[in-house]
Each structure stands twice: as structure tokens, then as C-alpha cells.
Write a protein that binds this DNA or RNA. Structure first.
Length: 782
DNA sequence: CATCCAGGCCTTTTT
DNA sequence: GGCCTGGATG
């Protein structure tokens, strides 16, 4: 008997001990599924002597993957776990595709486009197809293409599908298929895959290249999948192909926690799994080890309102616990204050640490009020979500250089840096280069390399030549140097780092620090040992690094153990647990979202989301909602969420804060926070000021005695019919000139350098203007 | 060619 | 309330 088995309950042990054949573990919230998964992996290795190289575990987030790996290591007391293939679908497939790229015609240093890059490509092709970008908004198009890919519908299938055509026609977007096709072709030409391509191409690889299929089928003898309820059809088909040889597939999921249908996830996968294999073992984990009885009761009551679930009965041995506190506040700011005050109270009286607390909400925009109130009480916090470190402008700029060096076909990256820092290759030149590239069916990079054949002006040509020479220089260094050395050299010779260093504004300093941090991260990457395998390009090279960082999220850079209050969306909180949870913004139109109340399916997903947030809490759960809040800059009134009514009254402890009548303070911490906040609508601002001090200075309002600056209206001038700009190199004071917009005038004086001459012109209709001759077009009249 | 500002548009949720 | 885009301007 292995001692790691002793901590398991009967069902859990059953799931761990089952070795060969398909198994589905229906794991309720907090029922120890990670424990089961990790123990199962450990058991396969320790007991069944399965080689760690032959186990594949797919997770939903990098965080989950990392945790799983660490826990297996802990159980086994050795470093064998390092060889496991554990990662997100996206990162594991990226790794495979890197090794097999040649089959699909991609370079193995293919770029992975994040959402912004992808939308950039969409903008480009919509433009090139002369379509209206108001109709074909990048967001809309991106989502449509993404859904298609997640359902394994390629551009050809898309064009052929009658139903899809009808949908697009009805939506007044008949050219969607055309855009999809152009987009896919452009990405391929750029040597780039978007997130969804990682799935789609993985599927194509396994489907169309039997030798690749059998290679990975033989490699992955055991496959485990976490958060199975959130997989989409593409992922499903890939798993089916990969597992077809051994059928040792273990999926773990909870239909009640399926919250990613907007990403193409479908619960169907759970039902289909049982149909696809004859002898699926099903194990239900129903005992919850996380939460108090009250919390579990409430969760069960809520989810009961959904139709058609896998029947299960989540129960717990834990203590009854406290009631759920339901708190109404007057405004979103009061909600913030209430939460911050309560946290302070809990720390004081209940010895709760910052890190025990999470504030969870439906939309990222809700974080603002909490940030402000936490800052006022000096409670340290961290926000998950929002921009990943690698999506910040300055970091992305630097990364774009590296991308171009690793994959010069990457047009998005190329466009980003070709004139950054400014080197005189402007929009006109870029547009021209792209058009040349399209008409000659070569990459933009190739146009630049052969620029002299395309008739650029000599100045531009020189700038292009310098740029090309620099990139080429780095490319020759590529085989000899590691990612860090290259990155460091890029920072130096582009002056990028220096430029940021010289910017002493607050943001400038932050930007400089971010780039330094980027360099550190690259260094760390090059110094961390990594398991390499035959046939893999897994090296310390730049390409590997770049592919990896695109798949990192914001959460991956944060220390999960830091003693800070955590703020995040409910989606981001999936799989996590906290002693104290604030579920905020339980209001109609916000939660459930106004976008998701039109069909039963949508509403049920919102309810599952509510279920998820409830079951994150171990001991204390607060549900808050505000009477009114700011949205899009204007104040709106919200009814309490319909989900609140689904909680039986006996589990609730109702209170209001920051206005309205006060009921009872309940059994928690004396309620002094409420006493201080009984301000009500009218004076809550003043009350707050007394408590917290004056709010941070707002931008000073324009004093009323200063008249608003009258906009200097330009008197319209219609240029002479055959307006042709003159050569103004030798323009002298006293000459009469015509300006396209300002009309006729006389040159008053000449200043500026020969490089950048500036003429002061007195116009007949528009007064005196300084005209930069390099840019403005003047016709010399006499 | 680059920068600044006004006005439009937005918000689900994420690898 | 904040971000991005596009037009005006030097």
C-alpha cells in the first residue's frame, strides 16, 4: 500500500486506482479533484511503472499545470515529474506543433498571435478587401472566426456551409467568409498562428499525417484532462485522436461549473464521452472538503434551478458555519467601502489575513471601486486580469523586435517596429511595402530586403536599408547566441532601452522598469533547465521563448502566496478557494449580464457562474449589490439580481450599508463598520471624507471666469484647380504663396535649420501661421 | 511625418 | 468613465 493513498476517500481512491481504459470523474466543487488527478499520476508512475514521458495532462490554465506538477513531485519525492507533459491545451499543442511545423508548411519558429495581433490582421484584410470596418468590426469578426475554428470549421467549410451563410446574411455581414479566408491566408503567410489555430492545426496534423498521429499516440499512453466541462469540439476531437490507440483517457469535470461556452466550450463533450467509448468508468466525487454546510446548501439550492444536469448530491462533513451575509449598498462606491471596512474588521477581530480574502465580480470594470476603497484603508491587494505583462506596449515593442528576428515573415511585428524608434519609415512607406508584398505575393520583409527594386525615394531607401541590415545582423547571431544575449543586444543597438531610461516621467520610469523586467525574464528563461527530447526544437532559443510568453496570462506572473487581498473576475477564480469571499455586484443587467438573459442556455450559464462564486468560499461568504452604479460614465439603477431570490431566506443574514434602513448586524464583528456608514445617500460623501480624508485631488475644473478658448476657425480656402506644390528649398521672405487650406499669403520670415525649414506666412484670411516646409505643401505664386 | 485633442464607442467572461 | 481613431495642425 502506498501511503499517498491513505488520505483519500473511497470514491477518490476508486478514481486513482483505476488504471486502464476511459474514466470520467464527475467532481463537484471542492471535492478534491486536483488531489485525485495528481495522486492518479503519481500512482501510475510509482505503482504501474508508467514512464513519466508517456503521461499527458491537460489543464485550463498555466497556474493549474504548475501546481499539478509540483504536487506530483511532492508525492513522489523525486524529480521524475519534470518529464511529464503537463500544460494547457494551448501550450502543449504549441510545443508539438513547433516540432511538427514542417508538415503544415509553417516555420518551426512560427509566431503565436495574441488577440491584439489577430485583430490587427483582421483590420488589415478588411481594409484590403475594401470593406467597411464599421460593419466588420475586428471584435465581431475575431469572435466569429474563433467560434468557427473552435468547431473545426475551416475557411473552406465555412464558405460551403449553407447555415453559416444564412446567419451571416441575416446579420448583414455577407463578406464574413471572405474575410475569414483572407485572414487565414494572411496568418499563414506571416508564419503565424492565433490561439485557435493551435487547436485547429493540431487537429489537422493528427488527422492528415498518420505518422505524426501514431507518434503521439504512442507517446501519450495516458491522458488526463482537467476542467473537462470547459473543452470545446476542437479539443474534444484532438483528444479522441490522441487517445484512440490506448484509450487511457481520464477526464475530470463538473457540468455545474461550465462557464466558458463563449469560447466554444460545450457540456455535450461530457455526454459524448460516454457514447464514444463502450466501457467508460464513471466516478462521482460528491463530498466537499472546502466549504461550510451553509455554503454548500446555498450552492445546491441555486444550481437546482438549472435544468438537465448530471444528477449529483454535493455534501460536506464540515461545520454548519455562518449564514451568508447579503449586503445592499447605495452605490458602487459604498459597496467598495463596505468591503474594505469589513476586511479591516475581519483582520482586527478574526485574525484573517489579507491573502485569505478574495473579491470576485462579473466584469473587470468593477475592480475600480474596490481598488480605491482598499487603498484608502491601506489594505494591500492585487488585481488579476487585465493586461498581461507581455501585452504592455513597451514590452510588446521590444518583443516585436525579437519576433521579427526569429520570424521575419511576421508582418504584424514588423509593422510595429519598423518605425519605432522613429527612423523615417512612415505610414506611406509601410502601406506601399504591404501593397508591393501583396501584388508580388512575397512577404513585406522581402520587399524591404529588395527595396531598391520597388522605387522608394532615396531617403526612405536608406532608412530601410539600415533597418534591414540591423535585423539581418541579429539573425546571423541567432544560432550562436541565446535569447537573452540577442534581446540585450537589440535593446542596446536600437536605443530603445536608452530612450526609455531618459524618460523621467512616472510612466516613463515604469516603462523602463518593465523592459528591464522583460530582459530579466528572458535571462531566467535561458538559465532554467528544460527537458529536451528527440525531434523537438525545445531549446533555449528565441523562438521557444517567444511562443511561450504569448500563452502566459496575467496571473502567471503573480505570486499566489503574497499576503494581499485578491481581486478578480469569477471566471478567473475558477479552481481557487478562499476562506473569505465577497461576491460583488449581484444586480440585474450586471450579474446576470444583460447580454446573457435572452435564452435559457445563457441564463443557466450565468447561474453556473453564480454557483462557482459561491463555492469558492470556505468559511465566510458575502454577497453584495448596489442600488446604483456608474456604467459608461452615467449613473444607472439596478434591481437586485434574480439569483439572490433563489437563496432560501433562512441561510441569509441581510444588511445594508452606506444608506437605507439597517436591519441587524448579525453575528459578526459587532457591526461597527455599519454604524460608521449609516450615512445614506445625501451625506455619504461627507461621511466618507470624515473617515478617510479628502479624496485624491481631481483635475481642477476650469474656473468659470476664464472664457473658453475660442477655437481658431480656419476660413475655408478652395485651392486653385491645378494646385501643385512647389519646390520650396529656396523660399525667401517676401514671396507670395498659396496653402491648400489657409489660402494666399506672404512669407514674413524664414527660420529653422536647413534640415527643417519653417516659414512664417501672413495669410490674407487666416492670419499668421508657422509652416513646416518639410510637411506642408505650398505653391509659390510669385 | 508626428503629435495632439475631440468625439465616438464601449464591457461580459479568456487561452 | 476611459480608450482608440481620425482629423487638424505645426
Amino acid at each position: 500500500m502506498h501511503d499517498y493513498l491513505s488520505g483519500l476517500n473511497e470514491r477518490q481512491r476508486e478514481a486513482v486506482l483505476h488504471c486502464n481504459g476511459p474514466i470520467m470523474i464527475v467532481a463537484g466543487a471542492g471535492s478534491g479533484k486536483t488531489k485525485v488527478l495528481t495522486t492518479r499520476i503519481a500512482h501510475l508512475m510509482a505503482h504501474h511503472k508508467v514512464d513519466s514521458f508517456n503521461i499527458l495532462a491537460l489543464t485550463f490554465t498555466n497556474k493549474a499545470a504548475k501546481e499539478m506538477k509540483e504536487r506530483v513531485e511532492k508525492i513522489l519525492h523525486n524529480t521524475e515529474a519534470r518529464n511529464l507533459y503537463i500544460g494547457t491545451f494551448h501550450s502543449v499543442f504549441a510545443r508539438v506543433l513547433r516540432a511538427e511545423a514542417h508538415h503544415l508548411g509553417y516555420p518551426n519558429s512560427f509566431t503565436i498571435y495574441d488577440t491584439d495581433d489577430a485583430k490587427g490582421v483582421i483590420k488589415t484584410v478588411v481594409n484590403e478587401l475594401n470593406l467597411d470596418d464599421k460593419v466588420y468590426k475586428p471584435n465581431v469578426v475575431y469572435n466569429r472566426i474563433s467560434s468557427a475554428k473552435n468547431a473545426l470549421v475551416g475557411p473552406e467549410e465555412y464558405a460551403r456551409d449553407y447555415g453559416i451563410q444564412q446567419e451571416d446574411l441575416r446579420a448583414n455581414r455577407p463578406a464574413m467568409g471572405q474575410i475569414y479566408d483572407a485572414y487565414a491566408k494572411r496568418c499563414f503567410k506571416n508564419g503565424a498562428m492565433d490561439f485557435d489555430d493551435l487547436l485547429l492545426n493540431m487537429y489537422k496534423l493528427l488527422k492528415n499525417y498518420p505518422e505524426a498521429l501514431s507518434k503521439y499516440q504512442r507517446k501519450f499512453k495516458y491522458i488526463l484532462i482537467d476542467e473537462y466541462q470547459d473543452t470545446n469540439p476542437a479539443q474534444y476531437e484532438i483528444i479522441k485522436l490522441l487517445g484512440a490507440m490506448h484509450e487511457n483517457i481520464c477526464v475530470v469535470g463538473d457540468d455545474a461549473q461550465s462557464i466558458y461556452s463563449f469560447r466554444g466550450a460545450t457540456i455535450e463533450n461530457i455526454l459524448q464521452f460516454q457514447k464514444d467509448y463502450d466501457d467508460v468508468k464513471v466516478v462521482k466525487l460528491e463530498q466537499n472538503y472546502r466549504s461550510s454546510q451553509n455554503i454548500i446548501h446555498v450552492a445546491n439550492e441555486v444550481i437546482k434551478n438549472n435544468k438537465g444536469q448530471i444528477p449529483k448530491n454535493l455534501w460536506t462533513d464540515n461545520a454548519e458555519g455562518e449564514k451568508i451575509k447579503l449586503v445592499r449598498t447605495a452605490s458602487d462606491n459604498d459597496e467598495g467601502k463596505f468591503v474594505a471596512d469589513t476586511i479591516k474588521e475581519l483582520k482586527l477581530r478574526n485574525h484573517i489575513s489579507n491573502k485569505d480574502v478574495a473579491i470576485l465580480y462579473r466584469t473587470n470594470a468593477q475592480s475600480r471601486a474596490f481598488e480605491e476603497s482598499l487603498r484608502r484603508l491601506a489594505i494591500p491587494y492585487i488585481i488579476y486580469g487585465g493586461l498581461s505583462f507581455y501585452q504592455r506596449k513597451e514590452v510588446k515593442d521590444m518583443v516585436a523586435y525579437l519576433r521579427v528576428i526569429a520570424n521575419p515573415k511576421d508582418e504584424e511585428a514588423l509593422k510595429r517596429i519598423i518605425n519605432y524608434p522613429v527612423r523615417g519609415i512612415g505610414k506611406t512607406t509601410i502601406d506601399k511595402a504591404v501593397i508591393f508584398a501583396n501584388t508580388h505575393n512575397i512577404s513585406m520583409w522581402e520587399v524591404l530586403v529588395n527595396a531598391q527594386q520597388f522605387g522608394f525615394k532615396s531617403g526612405t531607401l536608406e532608412a530601410i536599408d539600415q533597418f534591414v541590415t540591423m535585423i539581418k545582423m541579429f539573425q546571423t547571431e541567432l544560432p550562436k547566441r541565446n535569447a537573452y544575449e540577442i534581446a540585450f543586444a537589440v535593446g542596446k543597438s536600437t536605443n530603445l532601452v536608452k530612450e526609455l531610461f531618459n524618460d523621467k516621467s512616472t510612466e516613463g520610469v515604469a516603462r523602463y522598469e518593465n523592459v528591464q523586467e522583460l530582459l530579466n525574464s528572458i535571462k531566467e528563461f535561458t538559465e532554467t533547465p528544460m527537458n529536451e527530447e528527440d525531434g523537438e526544437v525545445g531549446d533555449k532559443g528565441l523562438g521557444t521563448y517567444l511562443q511561450q510568453i504569448t500563452l502566459l496570462t496575467d496571473a502567471d506572473n503573480k505570486d499566489p502566496d503574497a499576503d494581499v487581498v485578491k481581486l478578480m473576475t469569477i471566471h478567473a477564480a475558477k479552481g481557487l478557494e478562499f476562506p473569505v469571499v465577497f461576491a460583488a455586484g449581484l444586480e440585474e443587467t450586471l450579474f446576470p449580464s444583460a447580454m446573457s438573459i435572452n435564452t435559457r442556455e445563457e441564463l443557466e450559464e450565468e447561474r453556473r457562474l453564480f454557483y462557482v462564486v459561491i463555492t469558492r468560499a470556505k468559511q465566510k461568504l458575502y454577497i453584495t449589490h448596489a442600488n446604483s452604479r456608474y456604467r459608461f460614465g452615467s449613473l444607472i439603477q439596478n434591481e437586485p439580481s434574480r439569483f439572490i431570490e433563489e437563496i432560501p431566506n433562512e441561510f441569509l443574514d441581510r444588511t445594508s450599508a452606506g444608506g437605507g434602513p439597517r436591519n441587524q448586524t448579525g453575528s459578526w464583528g459587532g457591526g461597527s463598520a455599519f454604524d460608521r456608514m449609516r450615512g445614506g445617500y445625501g451625506n455619504s460623501a461627507q461621511e466618507a471624507e470624515k473617515q478617510y480624508g479628502a479624496p485624491p485631488a481631481k483635475k481642477a475644473a476650469t474656473p468659470s471666469y476664464i472664457a473658453p478658448k475660442p477655437a481658431a476657425k480656419t476660413v475655408e480656402h478652395v485651392p486653385t484647380k491645378d494646385f501643385v506644390p512647389s519646390d520650396t528649398t529656396n523660399l525667401q521672405a517676401g514671396q507670395k504663396v498659396e496653402h491648400q487650406k489657409f489660402g494666399f499669403g506672404v512669407v514674413d520670415k524664414m527660420e529653422g535649420s536647413a534640415h527643417n525649414p519653417i516659414a512664417t506666412v501672413k495669410f490674407e484670411l487666416n492670419g499668421e501661421k508657422k509652416i513646416m516646409l518639410n510637411y506642408a505643401k505650398l505653391r509659390i505664386v510669385e
